[in-house]
Amino acid sequence: MTMIEVRGLTKRYGLDTVVDDLSFTVEAGQVTGFLGPNGAGKSTTMKVILGLAAPTRGAVSVGGRRYRDLPVPLTEVGALLDAGAVHGGRKARDHLLALAVGNGLPRRRVDEVLARTGLEGVAHKRAGAFSLGMRQRLGIAAALLGDPKVLIFDEPVNGLDPEGIRWIRDFMRSLAHEGRAVLVSSHLMSEMAQTADHLVVIGRGKLIADTGMTEFLRGRGEGVVLVRTPEAAAFALRLTAAGAAVREGPDSSLVVSGLASEEIGKLAAYHGTVLGELTPQRPSLEDAFMELTRDSVEYQGVTA
């Protein structure tokens, strides 16, 4: 089910076209990764979705309506744009309470989201004393207050430690499992590969790719396989005979292309060759992403 629809969205700031005729949808039950280099227009698009910035052209709808026409917004959409957006002098619980009563949500929702994000112990601490990870959790707690069908997160793992990243990643996956639509932005492809089911890639405000994650990974061409064996020279000949292209890799390994790792394994078994290592090498996701967005990064560093 389509939960967010962006149609022909253009946003200009002065003469800068920050988002350029962008169209995509976000579906229920999956995590949609919103990917693009710095300055691509991800945050701006999210602000337009939430009614915080007015589109120059085009339209955006959430659950079929403009955001500002939602009767009880928090029950439809939860958003975390900036974890720092809390008043440092306010206790976590009061922060959430103010948001909850603003939409007439029952007070017990505050305790429920505090529990779900593991913040019960610090509910009566001032948000100013929170670590970045705790602030992220507080922001996520706020997004969950109304038990919404749509969740929007802008770079939620920025600056978190590995444990925090893992927690947020698992959390987003579980939200999608519950049937919610999750839109999450990032400029890290590797991060998205582990979280997203669907990818929307933009560069300089333009749509570059709108594709399923598996299609995207499969479409990145054939991988190569790294093979290590004591009988490297002999096995290289057999591989070539089987139609593979072989070149020498680091530390007397073989880099094989044209044969899948399974076939290489079978070949070795057939000839009784001992294998020390058999590793499919994917071109890194980061490489694929840079390839895709090369023409659209705002500021390109000069490589010496």
Partner: peptide, 15 residues
């Protein structure tokens, strides 16, 4: 609210 960015959260609650 402008200093912290909280105004955005407030407007998400009350658009």
């Amino acid at each position: 609210e402008y200093a912290t960015g909280l105004v955005r959260t407030s407007l998400v609650v009350t658009p």
